[in-house]
Design a binder for these strands. Structure first.
Lengths: 143, 143
DNA sequence: TATCGATAGTTGATATATCAACTATTATTT
DNA sequence: AAATAATAGTTGATATATCAACTATCGATA
C-alpha cells in the first residue's frame, strides 16, 4: 500500500476542513451569525424535538459539556428555547423558536448550494462508493 | 442526488473524527504525551528542516498564531529546538532534538499500525479512488 | 538608497473543546 | 422499599483555536 496510506488520512482531513471553512465563510458572508456546529444542532432539533443534549452531543461528535455551552449560545441567540421536560426532571425540552425556523428556511438554499459546490464533478456512484469506505473506516475506529 | 449528499459530508467528518480519536487514545495509552497535530508538525520538521512556522501552519490547516503556540509546546517538551535563522532574522531555525528523533522512532510503529487498523478491509484501488474524489472536494472548496 | 508593500512571527482577547468532578434525578437490583 | 447503579446535565480548570492588531524585518521598486 506504499505511500498512499500515509497521506490518505491527511487528505481526508484536508477535504473536510476545506469544506468546513468554505461553508463557514459563506455563513459569515451572508450574515448568518452561527457556526456550522450550531447549524447542525439546530437542524437536528427541528427534525426531532425529542433529542436530548446527550443525543445531540453524540450527533455532532462533541461531549456533553460542549453541548451545554453550544445550546446556551443558541438560546442566547433566541434560536432555541429551553423548557422543563414533560416527564423527566433531568432533561430539558429543547424547542426551535420561530426565529430559529425562519433561519432554517433562509439558510437551506445556501446549504444546498454548498453541498453542490463541494461535490462538483463527482457523480452519484462515486459518492456511494466513497460513503461505503467511510463507513468501514468509522467502523474500524469505533470497534 | 437524493439524500446522500446531505449525509456525505457528515460521514466524512465522522470518519476523520473517529480516526483522530482512535489515534489520540492510542497515543495516550502508550504514554506518548503529544497530540496528533504536534506529531504531524514534528514529523514534517524531521523531514524538512527548512519549513517555516507559516509553512507548518498551512500544512496542518491552522493559522500562524496557533502554530506559534503549538511550537512553544514542542519546545517546552524538548522535542524541538528554536534557534536563530542563518539568513533571515524574521524566521527561526526549527530543529528536531535528539529526544524528538527518539520519539519519532518509537512512535512510528504505532502510526503504521493505526493506519492499517483504520483502513482494514479497504483495498488499494478503493483508496486511490477515494483519494481522487477527496482531491476534487479540496479543489472545489479552495478555488 | 529611501520608500513602501509583503512577510514571519507574536500577543491579547475571545471562542470553543475537553476533562474530571460534581449534583440531581431516574432506573435497576436485591 | 432501600441501596446502588446509571443517566442528564452543569461547572471550573485547562487546552487549544481563531481573529485582529501589532512589531520587526525583508524585498521590490522607483
Amino acid at each position: 500500500m506504499q505511500k498512499l496510506n500515509e497521506i490518505f488520512f491527511y487528505q481526508l482531513e484536508k477535504a473536510i476542513k476545506s469544506y468546513r471553512r468554505y461553508v463557514q465563510a459563506r455563513f459569515k458572508d451572508q450574515g448568518f451569525g452561527i457556526t456550522v456546529d450550531q447549524w447542525l444542532v439546530l437542524k437536528a432539533l427541528s427534525e426531532n424535538a425529542k433529542l436530548t443534549q446527550s443525543d445531540l452531543a453524540e450527533l455532532v461528535f462533541k461531549d456533553k459539556a460542549s453541548m451545554t455551552r453550544l445550546i446556551e449560545l443558541l438560546v442566547l441567540k433566541k434560536l432555541v428555547q429551553r423548557a422543563a421536560h414533560e416527564t423527566s426532571r433531568r432533561r430539558f425540552k429543547l424547542t426551535v423558536t420561530d426565529k430559529g425556523h425562519e433561519l432554517i428556511v433562509q439558510i437551506i438554499p445556501l446549504i444546498k448550494d454548498n453541498r453542490k459546490h463541494g461535490l462538483r464533478g463527482i457523480n452519484f456512484a462515486e459518492l456511494q462508493a466513497v460513503e461505503q469506505i467511510l463507513k468501514k473506516i468509522i467502523d474500524n475506529c469505533t470497534n
